[in-house]
Write a protein that binds this DNA or RNA. Structure first.
Lengths: 330, 330
DNA sequence: TTGTCTTTTGACAACGTTGTCACTTAAAGG
DNA sequence: CCTTTAAGTGACAACGTTGTCAAAAGACAA
């Protein structure tokens, strides 16, 4: 900036004014500054600017997701990015891998870089460590799962309601023995989904058989094994409900391997690319990650714009997508 | 930092030394400083540090991908992140959506924030605009596609060789009329893949029928339509090779809809989640996005560590995964 | 004890900006 | 013509750090 000022024969403050598009610079000087910064290919230093600025905004936000490579997270990330770029804000992202410490480390690394806001899909079970960020006026929004011991805006899926819808669908087709395969019970969404299963059975007065429930399954293999086990019972389930993406795939594999894919019904939580091309197509309760990301980014920026209203808790609805596997009769 | 210094009754420089883990601070003062910064929950300001530091490193890199939400890009992103976090480096990412201007804008936004390095999956066809960044000693690595008018490290897939392998596989099963469905010819990987098709046919002295080739297909629908067209020809192809992810899905849809999925062979470029569970499983030439990302991040950091050797051009190999669709005889 | 050397510590400037405020110049009014 | 007002411009300090260098404090030998 000093060099540009020297070349344009103006003060460095005038260059600053031009760069920031402030009014009150004569067209003549403006042209000279523009020409000079063009010639020196001047690049504005946003970190220095951020340091000096009174509002201290870095035009950067941080996003913590469970795993950037998984389709749910990357769709969320992308829709956050879309909202952010429109405001000239850039997105720092990291994967927590369902690890409390990694989550905290990421947040701390973001804080060091003075992000204006944070969007977190929590892995940890105590978010009081975020009080320091809150004090520093960092906007914080939680997505997919609620925070613990911390009050903040949230954008969540109606997990329990979604599952109940799916179970109701199976019951409607005449099933009475419905197996349930779920993720780690420590993950709040997994707990919610399991709750939906239990509640819907109860409300329809169908007896809950704990022998048909397998929780704490992580990944395709574990799920395939658990599904196989259930289907080998002497009195096996006539339908399966799977509480997550990979679990659905594992269960489908098991059904296929045992040649039961046309005899045992299956509904999965979370949509899967290509699920419509399988035989049979997999009926799912689909979430809308793009809508979640968009909503989260929008609240975040409203907060950054000064909205001081009490915490807001948005629920994004799920959708039942019928493709065949959920419509098999017992 | 000033407050911490005051509370610990030391100079601010001593605090700086402790925060940066520099040697030569007596254990006594060290303890006092640590206690004070704990009590004030001091957060190191990396932007100010970056500004003052002699090496000017921000411990942040920028990644430009075509679309963060697509599985290839997000796998790449994730593996870059893994290499970066190990070094305490954070990743800024953005989607270019195959748009030259967006790519340039993202790079410029990254440059404003003084990223130490850039990893780019190029959408633009002239990268001379990056000369300014190069002058600023920003490390630059291109992934998936080569840069134009610019010399830099690259990590690419052996596109042509991969396709040739696939075509050879089909020829080996007796096919002589192999249709080709490809992406925009302006995308260099798409051009390379098409070249592989043409070359392999030529080298095996199989006549190329341009009526079996459809290029510039974007997305599932376009591909499905094009595949349908080919299969309705009076003298239709007995096998299809599809040059990209979504194109493969589109073609498979067409085959299924026409009931030809057990009669016409199909090999696709790029693996697809669940491809093994389809009927038939889709044989693919699989890329390894994680390996590409890892390699790219590793070169980048080697450059940042001072490696001044001439540009390096790595090729990541593809793998033929046999699942059934590619082994159908004519 | 003194002198020499080593270790620890702190004062100060600087990084590249922008906020504040005072100064200069031009335009308008009498 | 001078006075008043508005618009344009620049000098300087400050943002939160770290590099430089000199001073203070300890350690050790003579």
């Amino acid at each position: 900036m000093r060099d540009v000022a020297a070349l344009a024969k103006v003060s460095i403050k005038t260059v600053s004014r031009v760069v920031n598009g402030e009014s009150g610079v004569s067209p003549r000087l403006m042209r000279r500054v523009l020409a000079a910064s063009e010639r020196l290919s001047y690049q504005h230093n946003l970190t220095a600017s951020n340091l000096r600025r009174s509002d201290g905004r870095s035009a950067t936000i941080g996003v913590v997701l469970e795993d950037l490579a998984n389709p749910f997270a990357s769709a969320l990330h992308r829709s956050i990015e879309d909202v952010a770029v429109k405001r000239g804000v850039l997105v720092l992202a990291g994967s927590s891998d369902e690890d409390e410490e990694r989550e905290r480390k990421l947040v701390s690394a973001f804080a060091s870089r003075r992000v204006d806001g944070l969007i977190i899909q929590p892995s940890s079970h105590d978010h009081s460590y975020l009080l320091a960020e809150r004090r520093a006026r960092t906007a914080i929004v939680f997505v997919d799962r609620p925070p613990a011991f911390f009050d903040a805006d949230t954008v969540l899926t109606d997990n329990a309601a979604g599952v109940r819808r799916g179970i109701r669908h199976l019951l409607g087709h005449g099933h009475r023995r419905i197996g349930y395969l779920g993720d780690m019970h420590t993950i709040s969404t997994a707990a919610e989904r399991h709750r939906g299963y239990v509640e819907e059975l109860a409300s329809q007065r169908v007896e809950l058989d704990d022998g048909l429930v397998r929780l704490d399954l992580r990944g395709i293999e574990k799920s395939e094994a658990a599904a196989t086990e259930l289907l080998r019972l002497s009195h096996p389930p006539t339908a399966l409900f799977t509480g997550q993406n990979l679990i659905t795939i594992g269960a489908f594999r098991a059904l296929r391997r045992m040649g039961l894919h046309r005899r045992v019904a299956l509904i999965g939580f979370d949509d899967i690319l290509l699920a419509d091309l399988l035989e049979p197509g997999i009926t799912v309760i689909a979430q809308d990650p793009a809508a979640i990301g968009r909503a989260a980014a929008q609240v975040l920026f409203r907060r950054l714009d000064g909205d001081r209203a009490p915490s807001e808790h948005q629920i994004v609805l799920t959708k039942l997508i019928i493709r065949g596997s959920g419509e098999i009769a017992p």
